[in-house]
Each structure stands twice: as C-alpha cells, then as structure tokens.
C-alpha cells in the first residue's frame, strides 16, 4: 500500500541527485541515469503499472527542471518500463499472483538505460534537433551507460530493501503425486 508514496519519494530524491550532484562529478555530460534504475527495478519487482507511473513522473520532473520539452523523457521512461516489464515476464503480474521469480536486475538496468538514451535521441530527432552521431555515442550514451551500471550496483540493493520483490507462489500443478 505504501509502495506508491515510497516510489514518489524515491523518484523525487533521485531526480534531485541526478540534477544537482552528478553534473558536478561528470561536467561533460553523459551522467548516470538514476531514474532509469528505479524504473527498471520497479518494473521487475512491482510490475508495469507502478514503473510506468514512476517513470512518467520522473521524466516530467527532469524535463521541467532542465527546461526541456515536457513529456519527452516521460515517453522514454514509459517505453523503458513497458519493454522491461513485458520482456522480463513481469508485464501483467502483480503482488501475490502466480508468477516466476524476478530476474537479476543488473542486465535489465543496462538494457533499460540504453533504451532510455536511444529513446531520448529518437524523440529529439523527431522534434528536428540534429546531433553528431559519434559525439552522441561516445560522449553521451556510452559514458551514461557505464556510470548508470556502476551506480546500479550501489542503488539496486537499497531499492531492493524498499521494494522487496514479490515471491513466486509454488506451482501446485507441478507438485509430484503421492
């Protein structure tokens, strides 16, 4: 029941960290995407709905604070939440439902962060902004992926404590007959 408030607090704190701290550490762009870590973690441990709401709000906050087009980053996080939840087999699952155990989150974080970066570039290209592809890849996407991966190693255990993954019920139909 408290998952939504916790997610909202998390998304706000991570957004603040993302805009205030990481630019000091990585002044040349390509900083870590903390919101993407949260969205992927929620998509794996709490399902699509909470991940989508969190991603939408996180993207909205980031766009507002960074004076970008509102909704742009939200779309990228929504796509990330949907794809991770769907392809990890957690798309329509929920607490207490018969579902497989959540997969290891780190590969999904990397895939999700890559998806967000590519999605942002795609939306910006659709809006008519042009970039040097080489610069974008080597100075934005690759550094961001590496830093996100490193920070995910720290952040995921903390998030796991807050959003403990739902345990899968034993599949009774597969139990041996006595």
């Amino acid at each position: 029941m408290l998952d939504y408030p916790k997610a909202l607090v998390c998304v706000f704190l991570l957004m603040v960290l993302q805009i205030s701290v990481t630019p000091q550490l990585y002044p040349f762009g390509g900083g870590p995407d903390l919101i993407a870590i949260l969205v992927v973690a929620l998509a794996l441990w709490r399902g699509l709905e909470m991940a989508a709401v969190t991603g939408f709000l996180g993207g909205l906050l980031l766009d507002a604070v960074l004076y970008r087009h509102l909704g742009m980053t939200s779309l990228a996080y929504l796509a990330c939440a949907w794809l991770v939840a769907t392809f990890s087999g957690r798309g329509e699952a929920g607490a207490g439902m018969l579902e497989p155990a959540p997969p290891r989150p780190l590969p999904w974080v990397i895939a999700g962060a890559l998806l967000v970066q590519v999605g942002l570039v795609a939306v910006q290209l659709l809006l008519g902004e042009s970039y040097d592809a080489g610069f974008l890849v080597w100075h934005q996407i690759v550094p961001s992926l590496l830093q996100t991966t490193l920070l995910a190693l720290i952040l995921l255990p903390l998030l796991r404590r807050l959003f403990r993954p739902t345990r899968a019920r034993p599949d009774v139909s597969a139990a041996p007959a006595h």
């Binding site: 399902g47 699509l48 709905e49 989508a52 709401v53 939408f56 993207g59 909205l60 766009d63 087009h69 509102l70 909704g71 742009m72 939200s74 779309l75 929504l78 939440a81 949907w82 329509e92 939306v123 809006l127």
Partner: peptide, 20 residues
C-alpha cells in the same frame, strides 16, 4: 494497467505537443 499506461503515454504526448 493497460489503461494507466495508455493514459500516461497520451499525457506525455499531449505535454510534448504543448511544450513544443
């Protein structure tokens, strides 16, 4: 869930259009 996601996507696109 599908409705929520659809609404959020629609909201994002609306905001994006307005912002643009």
């Amino acid at each position: 869930r599908r409705a929520v996601v659809g609404l959020l996507v629609a909201a994002s696109l609306t905001l994006l259009t307005m912002s643009y």
